[in-house]
Write a protein that binds this DNA or RNA. Sequence first.
DNA 1: CCCGGGGCCTGGCCGC
DNA 2: TGCGGCCAGGCCCCGG
Length: 276
Amino acid sequence: MPELPEVETVRRGLEGQVLGRTIKQVTVTYAKMIRMDKERFIQEVTGQTILAVNRRGKYLLFDLGEVLLISHLRMEGKYFHYPRQAPEDKHAHVDFGLDDGSHLVYQDVRKFGTMELVAKKDLEAFIASHRLGPEPVAESFTLDSFQAGLKRSKKPIKNHLLDQSLVAGLGNIYVDEVLWASSLHPERPSQSLSQDEVIRLRENIIRIMALAIEKGGSTIRTYHNAFGENGRMQDELKVYGQTGQACPRCGHPIEKIKVGGRGSHLCPVCQEKNRT
DNA sequence: CCCGGGGCCTGGCCGC
DNA sequence: TGCGGCCAGGCCCCGG
């Protein structure tokens, strides 16, 4: 489940392998993941050079000059880069043949990932239409806008952080981690947070996302080697996947509950629900 | 407007 | 052992 740190790790890997390469040929074997006409996608991508590999939230942005190829890995999407022909793989859905004879392959067991082309000038509109909040860095993710967004909503804080609108990039793992670090119960209504709690939460989001990027992301369930799957952040996780283990802060066993239909790990003592 | 639930997918796991 | 059923989960869409 790639979240922002894992996508950033993938981005860095891709940058090292395909930057400056020209796409000579594209093969799409699962058309539904291309969110536009498949033939038009192939036609527009073929012959373009990868000028940069950027990222916004959990989206990868391949800069092809006039257009951006926007790729979302969703749950299990992965990129593989082969120096020659790619091996047969029933989970490989898109194959980009590059001008040095190498192949960049998108592989996705669950077929949830998406690819689309967006004109570079329409990037801001794309971001706005997807209600994508700021990157979780201090300069972009301001206390004022975060606080204002929380004040307007009764939504449980966990659901609110997952919807990407207040801040981009958090998924189920890192939301559980930042809420634990902030001693906040995931079901606390957004608007019930005190100013001190909002300040702490924001700082923990910025800190934990930066740490996770530095650690190369988390490797939770490895099926194969791929970009971004050599992470070390899993060793730093305090609550995610730690059901029954002692809370590192108070020693009470970590519990797993459902919040908004999602598995949520928490310490019921440190993250008491009925607090200010 | 908000919220909840279903759909998209498939492999792994559980229980019988 | 085999198999049915359920779960995981980001995001979108629909209905209330």
